[in-house]
Simulated assay, not measured.
Amino acid sequence: MLLGAGLVAALAAWELRGHARPLVSGSAKAHALAGSVSHHGPVPGQYVPPPDVVGDALANQVGLVALAVLPAAAGIACAAALTRRLFTGRRPALGMTPRLVFAALAALSAALVTAAVAGAALGSAVTALDSLESAVQVLRTTFVGAVLATAVLGPPWRTSVPEVSADHPAPDDRAGRPRTLTHAQA
């Protein structure tokens, strides 16, 4: 799950970084008003390059990934737990339906993490429309990746209760009937 969360965080950072714009900084406006600009004076609404940490692609990418990885891991874990809870007990969760539900929930959480990171880390450097576009792209890619990962690696939950061996039978209940072990006891 951590590998998946790292990939989701890297994808979200990549998408958001692609939509980030330079910001009008307050220090540039003050600098322009102080008269240290050319003889033409300050240009209203002039865009200036972002600060170094935002302008440096590697530092920004690493920072966005670090900010997104924990919420992405929590979202994927919650998606797996909810899917397991929905499909446990009815019949074994081996079909494609639980995997598709897990992929949809994981993709939805990845899109929410992308939008939250855009608002928290980039502020007005990314417009709401660009943030939504990034979130939708992350949603689509995460859904496809989760479907492929669960098809190849299996679902991120245990699909069957381990068999009780003859050497260690299940204890009897008070009435003398054999008791079956629950998943948590096994």
Rank of each mutant, 00 (worst) to 15 (best):
L2I: 13
L3H: 04
G4H: 09
A5H: 01
V8M: 01
A13C: 07
A13E: 03
W14C: 03
E15F: 10
R17H: 11
R21F: 02
V24I: 12
G26F: 11
S27P: 00
A32K: 00
G35C: 01
G41R: 05
V43P: 00
V43C: 02
G45Q: 11
P51M: 02
D56S: 14
L58K: 01
A59D: 09
N60Y: 04
L64C: 07
L67H: 05
L70A: 15
A72N: 11
A73K: 01
A74H: 01
G75D: 08
I76D: 02
A80E: 03
A80T: 04
T83Y: 04
F87T: 08
T88A: 13
T88H: 06
G89A: 06
R90T: 12
P92Q: 06
A93D: 12
M96D: 05
T97N: 05
P98I: 00
R99Q: 10
L100I: 12
A103W: 04
A103H: 03
A103S: 09
S109F: 13
L112W: 03
T114H: 01
A118T: 00
G119W: 12
G119N: 09
A121Q: 11
G123H: 08
S124E: 13
V126A: 09
D130V: 03
E133H: 13
E133S: 15
A135K: 07
V136H: 01
Q137D: 07
V138D: 00
L139N: 05
L139T: 01
T141D: 05
T142V: 11
T142A: 08
F143C: 00
A151N: 12
P155Y: 08
W157L: 08
W157V: 10
R158G: 02
P162R: 14
P169E: 14
A170Q: 13
P171H: 12
R174D: 15
R174V: 15
A175Y: 10
R177I: 05
P178Y: 06
R179K: 14
R179P: 12
Q185T: 15
